[in-house]
Amino acid sequence: MADGTPRPRAVLGDAVWGVRAYGFIVAMWVRSTMAYRASFAMMLAANFATTFLDFAAIMIMFSQVDALGGFTLPEVAFLYGTSCVAFGLSDLLLGTAERVGRRVRDGTMDVLLTRPVPVLSQLAADRFALRRLGRIIQGSLVLGWAVLRLDLDWTPGRVALLFSMVLSGAAIFGCVFVLGGAFQFWAQDASEVQNAFTYGGTTLLQYPPTVFGKELVRGVTFVVPLAFVNWLPALRLLGRDDPLGLPGGLDFASPAVALLCCAVTGLVWRAGLRAYRSTGS
């Protein structure tokens, strides 16, 4: 969080320090959570169960039909699992970045600014909720089941694509969380808008793109690039064509899109913080 014109070296140094600081704040919260093991176990189970509901709804749908938008249950489960794990990772690591509005309102944003640690690190690590592993575990189980049932030919390249998809997806969702937080520097009460993109986004990506209108698919490909979280790479792994007929190379573009998102998010976050520091409200 160097102010003024950033130098590349300084930015890198800040980033490393930011990640380290994030790490030790998180470690503190994990230790504190583990002091109440029974309560933690219960919350983990609750998180697992709540996030599983979406898949329960999908299973009920498939108790009535054989295919949805031309996709079978294991195929939908594959989309569901990848979306869920990517979103779960970002929710675990950056989910609390949405508390910007609340912190501005109660004045504790100022407290964060008086400490020698990047504000974003402090914000994202604060009240780190390990129970959010529940969603990741649940999504991984569904994903594992889908992979077993689908009988795809897992070459090393395809395995690499699967992992890069989930990690890039987590980065893209993470950017949405941070952008949502940054947006609240300007509109403090609007925290719920980002739910449309985070929770809404992960719900959308649990279903095949063929289910949705082309305009909507185009929107989440080019405007909010959620299609790169799983749709485009997953369709390739499933051997399906994407409904927009995009060039095949885009199926591998998720890491690049994720990097671009991170750059844009970094700039918007800085602008938000700068706006806060000049208005103080």
């Binding site: 100022d110 600014l113 008086t114 520091r277 000049s278 103080g280």
Partner: peptide, 12 residues
């Protein structure tokens, strides 16, 4: 408070 916030670098 505004002055203190400027002295601490919170506000520009």
């Amino acid at each position: 408070s505004t002055t203190i916030k400027m002295l601490t670098g919170i506000l520009t």
